[in-house]
Design a protein around this nucleic acid. Structure first.
Lengths: 71, 71
DNA sequence: TGAATGCTAACTATAGTCTGTTGTTTAAGA
DNA sequence: TCTTAAACAACAGACTATAGTTAGCATTCA
């Protein structure tokens, strides 16, 4: 995942935005979503091309629709 | 990817539905989306956990919003 | 300082590619 | 009808690329 793709950047920004709105740390979000601390960081920095199942996990953890993270 | 996840099943069904509406074969869709023939089949059968970049490729190829494929 | 995040590197699990074969429609011709 | 062929999709297996895990240390910032 070099040369970061626009859609991953948008997604990461949105996750970070909502996470902060909720007053969660990356570690707390990771715990709720059952993912690893550093992985959340990588997603927010658009360093990984996230899969649909993990998109859903994060949306659930943030209590938003997937729509809200992508469009 | 055994024990297929609901969200992947929904996604696959939706891709197949729209693909057929457009009168495209899996091979034609694959070509437009720049993905492999058999991979489109696997996605429609919910056998693979698709990544965000490929979700976007398929949405573009089908000329729909990602929303349309997920929610 | 301490809590949160960034970053690296090494690892393992699996996404995604590719070739080939089998099975299933569908349509045309006798 | 009944075949036959051609187009399409399912499936298997072997492979390569990369998603996702984890630990440890560096950096940032309140």
């Amino acid at each position: 995942m070099d040369s970061k793709q626009k859609i991953l950047i948008k997604f990461g920004e949105r996750v970070r935005e909502i996470r902060k709105e909720k007053g969660l740390s990356q570690e707390e979000l990771a715990h709720i979503a059952d993912l690893h601390r550093t992985y959340i960081g990588m997603i927010e920095r658009a360093e990984k091309n996230i899969t649909l199942i993990n998109i859903e996990k994060i949306a659930n953890a943030l209590e938003v629709k997937i729509n809200n993270l992508i469009n």
